[in-house]
Simulated scan of single mutants.
Amino acid sequence: MAETIANWFVTTFEGTLAREWIVFLVSLLPILELRGGIIAGFAMNMEWLPTFIIAYIGNILPIPFILLFIRYIFKVLKKTPMRRVVEWCERRAEQKSEQIRKYAYWGVFLFVA
């Protein structure tokens, strides 16, 4: 599925956008993320290192905004038909919060290492 969507981006926008922008935009999408960006770069015959760097930046860029605005986004979504999904996500996060606090040091250690 990721390959199909990435190839659609390539065939649709290759003449109008630079290859680097296509990789970046594909990497921003939640479904495709890094994998889709790399597939799109290879489909356009880009070198592997620039493809990986651009896809990685595109994949990481939304994270600070999500962390900053997730409470506001949930507040807005609770007023829509997505209310049950949002409440489920909040309950699940609350259930896992103690486990995350307990192993936070080791999780960060392993992630950085």
Results as ranks from 00 to 15, higher is better:
I100H: 03
M44I: 08
W21K: 12
S97E: 05
L29A: 15
K102E: 09
F24W: 11
V26L: 09
R35E: 02
S97C: 00
P30R: 13
V26Y: 08
I57R: 04
S97G: 00
I73C: 08
V86F: 01
R35H: 09
Y103A: 08
R101W: 09
P30D: 11
V10L: 07
R71L: 04
I31Y: 10
A43S: 15
R35Q: 10
A40D: 10
A104E: 07
L68N: 09
E20R: 03
A2F: 06
I39M: 10
V85T: 12
C89T: 03
E47C: 01
M1C: 06
F24I: 14
R91P: 00
I22T: 15
F24M: 14
K102L: 06
G36E: 06
R91D: 13
R71I: 01
I39W: 02
T16E: 01
P81Q: 09
L32C: 11
G36Q: 04
G107A: 02
L32G: 05
F74Y: 13
L49F: 15
L110M: 09
F111L: 10
M1S: 15
M82I: 14
E14Y: 13
Y105D: 08
I5Q: 02
P81R: 13
Y103Q: 08
V10P: 06
M44W: 06
W106A: 03
I60V: 15
F109M: 06
L29Y: 02
K78G: 04
L32I: 12
